[in-house]
Amino acid sequence: MKIAIIVPMEIEAEYYRKYFHSGHKEMFGSTTFEHFCVNQNDVYIGLSGIGKVQAAMNLASLLSLVDIDLVFMTGTAGSLQDSVHKEDLILASAFAYHDAHNTLAGDYVEGQIPGEPALFNLDSTARSNFAQFLQKEKIDYQEGLIVTGDSFIGSQVQKDKIKQNFSTALGVEMEGAAFAQVAYHFEKPLIGLRAISDNGNQDANGDFDHFAQKVGAKAAKIICSYIEKMA
């Protein structure tokens, strides 16, 4: 099986390099992917960069040239709910764009890009298998909607505005819906696992640097363990 693991930032990728050894580097699009062989699986680990365009460009470049079977998207997110706390894990059930406002352009809902689904649902056998792994290993996680936009959310005002349109969203970040849109068009299963680094409010900027590396490593350790046990 060919597996892609993509994270936005270097501090979120460090753990994978410590865990997987003797990889060689290949360039896809504008980013370098490190290629490892793990339990007879080909694993491609790369940085997407930050934001929707970088995420879409680099995943599409990889999928255009390599017949990837499964995409893992991991990294950090900010909390949108009081029940979602720092260091919690969110297994995304769907992604949407919180900064897409096209209701005046036709019969569209908030978050929908014309010609695209209102939500990018991630239902797949691969995702179900991963969820069963989390449960078997007694790893605490929540499941739900994560929303994506090109702005870092660092105030209560920003949070409240997002929640007006996406009241049930658990987390907010800057790449997930773009990954999901690309995976949807390439017909590839996507597993999105985000770890909460901040509360998306006025304390987010200070919290992020402190927690991003810690929670990124937490998510990475789980994914690495899962891949090592895959048949």
Rank of each mutant, 00 (worst) to 15 (best):
G23M: 11
A169I: 05
C224N: 07
K18Q: 11
F20D: 06
L145R: 05
D67E: 15
E10M: 02
T74L: 09
H24C: 01
D69Q: 02
T125P: 09
A231S: 14
G171Q: 07
K218H: 05
S79M: 03
G154Q: 06
A217M: 13
F166V: 02
V84K: 09
Q202S: 14
G206L: 09
S48Q: 06
I153V: 14
A177S: 11
N165K: 12
L134K: 08
N58D: 05
A92N: 02
V84G: 08
G171M: 13
S30T: 14
V43G: 09
A177L: 01
M27A: 09
K229D: 03
Q164V: 14
I227G: 02
I50A: 06
N39H: 14
L104Q: 10
A217P: 01
Q181W: 03
S124Q: 02
N199F: 05
V84N: 04
K136Y: 06
K188T: 13
I5K: 10
V53S: 13
V53R: 05
R194S: 06
Q135G: 12
A183K: 12
M73G: 07
S64F: 00
A92R: 05
I153S: 00
A100H: 08
E116M: 15
L89F: 10
A195I: 08
F179S: 02
I139D: 03
N58L: 09
I162L: 01
L134R: 14
A217K: 14
Y97W: 01
L89R: 09
D99F: 02
L59T: 08
M27Q: 13
I45W: 04
Y16W: 14
